[in-house]
Simulated scan of single mutants.
Amino acid sequence: MSAFPATRMRRLRQADWSRRLVSENTLTANDLVWAVVVSDTADPTEPVAAMPGVERLGLDTLANAAKRAEMLGIPAMAIFPHIDPAKKDEKGSEAFNKDGLVPQAIRTIKEAAPNVGVICDVALDPFTTHGHDGLMQDGAILNDETVNVLIKQALVQAEAGCDVIAPSDMMDGRIGAIRDALEAHGFTDTMILSYAAKYASGFYGPYREAIGSGAVLQGDKKSYQMDPANTEEALREVALDIDEGADMVMVKPGLPYLDIVQRISETFGVPTLAFQVSGEYAMIEAAAANGWIDGNRVMMESLMAFKRAGAAGIVTYFAPRAAEILNG
Rank of each mutant, 00 (worst) to 15 (best):
2 S>M: 11
9 M>D: 12
10 R>W: 14
12 L>T: 14
13 R>A: 14
17 W>R: 14
19 R>M: 15
23 S>R: 15
24 E>K: 15
27 L>E: 01
35 A>H: 03
38 V>S: 00
39 S>K: 04
43 D>H: 13
51 M>W: 01
56 R>V: 01
57 L>W: 03
59 L>S: 07
61 T>N: 08
63 A>E: 04
64 N>V: 09
67 K>T: 00
69 A>M: 03
69 A>C: 05
69 A>H: 00
71 M>V: 08
71 M>G: 08
75 P>F: 00
75 P>S: 07
76 A>Y: 03
78 A>M: 15
81 P>K: 02
81 P>M: 06
83 I>G: 02
91 K>T: 14
101 L>Y: 02
102 V>T: 12
107 R>P: 05
110 K>E: 03
110 K>D: 03
111 E>T: 13
124 L>F: 06
126 P>M: 11
133 D>P: 04
136 M>C: 11
137 Q>I: 13
142 L>H: 08
153 Q>S: 10
153 Q>L: 11
154 A>G: 06
156 V>N: 03
161 G>D: 06
162 C>M: 07
164 V>N: 02
167 P>K: 05
167 P>S: 09
169 D>K: 04
180 D>T: 14
185 H>L: 10
186 G>S: 12
189 D>H: 12
190 T>K: 01
191 M>H: 05
191 M>W: 00
192 I>Q: 01
193 L>A: 00
206 P>E: 06
208 R>N: 08
211 I>C: 14
214 G>K: 13
216 V>G: 04
218 Q>K: 15
219 G>F: 12
226 M>V: 04
226 M>H: 01
231 T>W: 11
231 T>H: 13
235 L>Y: 06
236 R>W: 07
237 E>T: 06
240 L>T: 10
241 D>C: 08
248 M>F: 15
259 D>Y: 12
260 I>R: 04
262 Q>N: 14
266 E>F: 10
276 Q>K: 05
279 G>C: 11
281 Y>E: 05
285 E>R: 15
287 A>K: 06
288 A>C: 15
290 N>S: 11
291 G>I: 11
293 I>Q: 04
294 D>T: 10
295 G>V: 06
295 G>W: 08
299 M>I: 10
300 M>D: 05
300 M>Y: 04
306 F>G: 04
308 R>D: 09
313 G>H: 01
313 G>Q: 01
314 I>C: 05
324 E>H: 02
